[in-house]
Lab assay of single mutants.
Amino acid sequence: MDVFMKGLSKAKEGVVAAAEKTKQGVAEAAGKTKEGVLYVGSKTKEGVVHGVATVAEKTKEQVTNVGGAVVTGVTAVAQKTVEGAGSIAAATGFVKKDQLGKNEEGAPQEGILEDMPVDPDNEAYEMPSEEGYQDYEPEA
């Protein structure tokens, strides 16, 4: 019985440690998101679009440190934060509304985080759909 109880105690310690790591990862992701939003706020009209992409990228980098179902929630929060940063930029006159959601080359930025393969159960990952990809044929 002692062996059984000791095993359960060790398992509990492992769960607590994993929860603490997840909590730490979420806190880091939130900190990076805040950094990115402050970065966007300090940019001029020309830099705002690039700044919004930076927020998304920093958040995406930190999301990889967070495991399990938390990833889905962090990704949703990050996307809403990026959308909010863009709205703030438009409201303050840093950028025109028609410039939001495009990178410096004018290509749409939507789907940055949505296409990231995420499995809350950590069982399997699927690649994003290939609808947006084109076949590449090298020139002879």
Rank of each mutant, 00 (worst) to 15 (best):
M1N: 01
M1I: 15
D2P: 08
D2L: 06
D2Y: 12
F4E: 00
M5I: 00
K6M: 05
K6R: 11
G7H: 04
G7W: 05
G7L: 01
L8D: 06
S9V: 07
S9L: 05
S9Y: 15
K10I: 14
K10L: 09
K12M: 15
K12D: 00
K12Y: 12
G14A: 11
G14T: 05
G14I: 13
V15C: 10
V15I: 11
V16Q: 07
V16C: 13
A17W: 08
A17N: 13
A17S: 04
A18K: 04
A19N: 13
A19S: 03
K21P: 00
T22S: 03
T22M: 08
K23T: 07
K23R: 15
Q24E: 14
G25I: 09
V26Q: 00
A27T: 13
A27F: 14
A27P: 00
A27H: 05
E28K: 15
E28I: 10
A29I: 14
A29S: 07
A30F: 09
K32Q: 11
K32I: 10
T33Q: 09
T33R: 01
K34R: 12
K34L: 02
K34N: 10
K34E: 04
E35A: 15
G36A: 13
L38Q: 09
L38H: 07
V40T: 09
V40K: 02
V40Q: 03
V40I: 05
G41A: 04
G41L: 07
G41W: 05
K43T: 06
K43A: 11
K43Y: 12
K43H: 06
T44W: 15
K45D: 00
K45L: 11
K45P: 04
K45S: 01
E46A: 15
E46F: 14
E46P: 04
E46Q: 04
G47C: 01
G47W: 09
G47Q: 07
V49E: 04
V49R: 08
G51Y: 05
G51H: 15
V52I: 03
V52E: 00
V52H: 14
A53I: 09
A53S: 12
A53H: 06
A53G: 07
T54Y: 04
T54W: 12
V55G: 06
A56G: 12
A56H: 09
A56I: 05
A56E: 02
E57H: 03
E57R: 10
K60R: 01
K60W: 02
K60P: 01
E61Y: 05
E61G: 14
E61R: 12
E61T: 14
Q62R: 10
Q62H: 13
Q62S: 02
V63E: 00
V63I: 13
V63S: 02
V63H: 03
T64K: 07
T64P: 03
T64V: 04
N65L: 11
V66P: 00
V66D: 00
G67V: 07
G67M: 06
G67P: 02
G68N: 00
G68D: 11
A69I: 10
A69V: 08
A69Q: 14
A69D: 02
V70H: 01
V70D: 01
V70F: 05
V70A: 03
V71Q: 02
V71R: 08
V71D: 03
T72E: 09
T72I: 05
G73A: 07
T75N: 09
A76W: 09
A76D: 02
A76H: 14
A76Q: 05
A76K: 15
A76V: 10
V77I: 07
V77S: 01
V77T: 05
A78W: 10
A78E: 01
Q79T: 10
Q79E: 14
Q79S: 04
K80N: 08
K80H: 06
K80M: 06
K80E: 00
T81H: 07
T81E: 01
T81Q: 04
E83R: 15
E83Y: 13
E83I: 14
G84H: 09
A85S: 03
S87K: 05
S87R: 04
I88V: 06
I88E: 00
A90Y: 11
A91L: 06
A91F: 05
A91D: 02
A91C: 07
A91M: 12
T92S: 13
T92L: 14
T92D: 02
G93V: 03
G93E: 08
F94Y: 14
F94W: 13
V95H: 15
V95C: 03
V95G: 06
K96H: 02
K96I: 03
K97L: 15
D98I: 13
D98C: 05
D98Q: 07
D98W: 13
D98T: 07
D98L: 10
L100T: 09
L100W: 03
G101N: 03
G101V: 02
K102G: 11
N103Q: 07
N103D: 14
E105V: 13
E105H: 04
E105P: 03
E105R: 15
E105Q: 10
G106D: 11
G106N: 07
G106I: 06
G106P: 08
A107I: 12
A107Y: 02
A107E: 09
P108S: 04
P108C: 06
P108D: 00
P108Q: 01
Q109N: 03
E110I: 06
E110G: 03
G111N: 01
I112N: 13
I112R: 13
I112S: 14
I112C: 05
L113I: 04
L113E: 14
L113G: 15
L113M: 05
E114W: 14
E114G: 03
E114R: 12
D115S: 11
M116R: 05
M116H: 14
V118N: 14
V118Y: 03
D119C: 12
D119R: 15
D119S: 03
P120V: 05
P120C: 10
P120Y: 11
P120T: 13
D121Y: 09
N122W: 03
N122R: 12
E123F: 11
Y125F: 15
Y125K: 05
Y125W: 06
E126K: 05
E126P: 10
M127Q: 10
P128H: 02
P128M: 05
S129R: 07
S129L: 10
S129A: 15
S129G: 05
S129K: 06
E130W: 11
E130F: 10
E130Y: 07
G132S: 12
G132W: 02
Y133G: 04
Y133K: 01
Q134T: 02
Q134P: 15
D135W: 02
D135F: 08
D135S: 06
Y136H: 01
E137I: 06
P138W: 10
P138L: 05
P138K: 08
E139K: 11
A140R: 07
A140C: 15
